[in-house]
Amino acid sequence: MTEHLLDVQGLNKSFGDNHVLRGVDLIVPTGSVTVLIGPSGSGKTTVLRSLNALEIPDAGTVRIGDVSVDFGAKPDRRQITELRAQSGMVFQSHNLFPHLSVLRNVTEGPLVVQKRPAAEVNAEALELLRRVGLAEKAEQFPYQLSGGQQQRVGIARALAIKPRLMLFDEPTSALDPELVGEVLAVMKDLAADGWTMVVVTHEIRFARQVADQVLFLDGGVVAERGTPAEVLDHPKEERTQRFLHRLIDPL
């Protein structure tokens, strides 16, 4: 087991003429929280989606634990599947399975893909739901939940496949402001429990409190990286300063 759970080198990605990633490197120590910030179109979500191959980069390598994929070498489906199994993903728009109960959303991966015994999977899923504060909602359908609750089920679903790494793609951006806190609280708990996390977010307070490192992306490159104190409180780059200023004072 290496000290760095996640190691990303030289990610490049173009959508047509749009060169969205221009050589992104990223190292995430085991048990640490990395927050990606940056303006829209900066490539932060594309970086995150490259980590589980929802986006296939044109070049670059992603290593999670002992699974390494070189995207420049046209990885086959088996390699991609193996890489995906290393991480759980929480989406901006939860993407819960609407036709399945809350419990079955959580058990679907372990039961259907990992083919683990139902009794064990159900017990674990209920424990995960309890952990995100939703054990009593197990038999409801996703539409019967609030946005914050849906997002917490999404976290439980991602945890259920027992990933090594948790990925969060703007998990609170689609929520009403009063529901943001309950989701961030669960994420803080996970961080405190030692989960390795990569989070794309605009929640600067969360980054300040929870992140071990913050990366500011702009124009497809990491423009600045460091501790929250370095990047958020004393940014060296002018574009970082401007971005943070716009977040704090949009008018």
């Binding site: 929802l54 989406f91 679907e108």
Partner: peptide, 21 residues
Amino acid sequence: PRGQWEAAQTVGMNYPTTLRR
């Protein structure tokens, strides 16, 4: 929605399983 395919992929499902389930 596209997100349903993606969510299924992130819990490890392949194409036939995603389609069926």
